[in-house]
């Protein structure tokens, strides 16, 4: 028996919004420690890794490890039927081929349940090696989304250059060149507005705007985003999900032809 309950459907809606542009379907691996999802996008350029800890749920029970392959388009249809403040419960029997998603209004007067067919997906889990990153940048998630959106107008690629002074995002194309520099913030009143750079050595890497923009669909989950970079390894874009876990996106760099 698997049962996981969250106080607010809005969190699950935001999580789905953060992955459904990259993934058509995905396997949710459930164990007593929580829910894990790891999947590559169709073109195998990026990898999504979602971790939801069991202690972050209002109720969590998972008697036997369970892998639930879900069509994310179908899940989005179901979540559209929830009000943001509804409680949401996911339930499945051991070895079941369906999952039930139930919404309850705060006053318990409306209860709806949706049974969704599960899919058998080819699971290809990738091993992610530990990396000592050259640069780790923490910045407001909305600022990162804005930069990715703005620079995508100028080029398919964005160059991220990080030094101890700051981080520079550049794009160059037919229109010309765009550069956006963010300096490390001195003192800020609000932690969520800070730009913080931890640098071992400077790094310059090039990434596809299309994927960065897809990652920023996770912006509503978190006030801050963390970018971890190292020469010739994938970028890690991480959004914390408060009291519940995190979503990490890995993006392979572009290299000179």
């Amino acid at each position: 028996m698997f049962e996981a309950r969250l106080g607010q459907a809005t969190i699950l809606k935001k999580i789905l919004d953060a992955i459904k542009d990259l993934l058509n379907e995905a396997t949710f691996d459930c164990s007593d420690s929580g829910i894990q999802l790891q999947a590559m996008d169709n073109s195998h350029v990026s990898l999504v890794s979602l971790t939801l800890r069991s202690d972050g749920f209002d109720k969590f029970r998972c008697d036997r490890n369970l892998s639930m392959g879900m069509n994310l388009g179908s899940m989005a249809k179901i979540l559209k039927c929830a009000n943001n403040e509804d409680n949401v419960t996911m339930k499945a029997q051991d070895n079941a081929d369906t999952v039930t998603i139930m919404f309850e209004s705060a006053n318990q007067e409306k209860v709806s349940d949706y049974e969704m067919k599960l899919m058998n997906l080819d699971q290809e889990h990738l091993g992610i090696p530990e990396t000592d990153f050259s640069c780790v940048v923490r910045m407001p998630a909305m600022e990162f989304a804005r930069i990715c959106r703005d620079l995508a107008q100028f080029s398919e690629s964005v160059v991220i250059c990080c030094t101890k002074e700051g981080v520079k995002f550049s794009a160059s194309g037919d229109v010309g060149t765009a550069n956006i520099k963010l300096a490390q913030t001195g003192s800020v009143d609000k932690e969520e507005e800070a730009v913080i750079i931890e640098m071992q050595e400077p790094v310059t890497l090039t990434f596809a705007c299309r994927y960065l923009n897809a990652f920023t669909k996770a912006t509503p989950l978190s006030t801050q985003v963390q970018l971890s970079m190292c020469a010739d390894v994938p970028l890690v874009v991480e959004y914390a999900i408060k009291d519940l876990g995190h979503i990490r996106y890995y993006l392979a760099p572009k290299i000179e032809d």
């Binding site: 590559m40 350029v45 990898l47 990738l126 090696p129 390894v233 993006l251 392979a252 572009k254 290299i255």
Partner: peptide, 12 residues
């Protein structure tokens, strides 16, 4: 050139 993520992370 766009590298593939599988050229960095290997199948388990």
């Amino acid at each position: 050139m766009q590298k593939s993520i599988t050229s960095f992370f290997k199948k388990k």
